[in-house]
């Protein structure tokens, strides 16, 4: 295999997933669109002069996909997700080398921690974050009070936060 291809393949294996996850959130949950953006990012990487990208391809991919997603939101006036989605504060702050690696690691741990939450907490949080429902909609769907939904989600996030802080990072995952 030619060296460029091997290089791109390694980058794909390493960063494809965190990129699609991240871009999906920026695009308000549109995973199909996120895939296109990420593919586009990689295609651009293939076109970019390698000497200019090599060594910081991770940061490059991250920036290209993020900017692309933000452009789409702007062009389509889809500002809702960026503005209102939780984590909108991240859009301007979450740059830096190792970002995708750190995210991939966090995603893996959060996926695992989600399974340890009490079922109703996990369900409420999933409805909120994966299905973008409001507290009111969640309370209707779960047949429980608004106050209870608020409690469930607060506790769920609080548990995830403490567990994440306590649990040390997996050594195997720490590489960029």
């Amino acid at each position: 295999m030619n060296p460029d291809r091997a290089w791109i393949q390694t980058l794909l294996q390493r960063h494809e997933e965190p990129l699609v996850r991240y871009t999906t959130r920026l695009l308000g949950g549109d995973v199909q669109r996120a895939r296109d953006v990420v593919q586009d990012g990689f295609l651009r990487l293939c076109q970019a002069p390698k000497e200019r990208v090599e060594g910081h391809a991770e940061a490059w991919l991250f920036a290209v996909c993020r900017n692309r997603a933000i452009d789409i939101c702007r062009k389509e006036n889809r500002m809702g997700p960026l503005e209102q989605a939780p984590g909108s504060a991240l859009a301007s702050q979450d740059e830096g080398p190792g970002e995708l690696t750190a995210r991939r690691q966090a995603h893996a741990r959060l996926t695992r921690l989600m399974t340890t939450l009490p079922p109703d907490q996990a369900r409420a949080l999933r409805l909120k974050l994966a299905e973008h429902k409001t507290y009111r909609e969640i309370s209707a769907e779960m047949g429980t009070s608004l106050g209870r939904v608020s409690q469930l989600i607060t506790s769920a996030l609080e548990t995830l936060r403490t567990q994440l802080a306590e649990e040390p990072a997996q050594p195997a995952e720490v590489r960029s």
Binding site: L12, E16, E17, P18, V20, R21, Y22, T24, R25, G29, V31, A34, R35, D36, V38, Q39, A85, P86, G87, S88, A89, L90, D94, R103, A106, H107, A108, L110, T111, M114, L125, R126, L129, A130, L157, L160, R161, L164
Partner: peptide, 24 residues
């Protein structure tokens, strides 16, 4: 902090977060 955590969790909950074979 809550927003950052919610963002990461939202990302972790994305289903099938990979490119298609054709795209790859």
């Amino acid at each position: 902090q809550i927003q950052a955590l919610a963002a990461l969790t939202e990302e972790a909950l994305v289903e099938a977060p990979t490119l298609s074979e054709r795209q790859r």
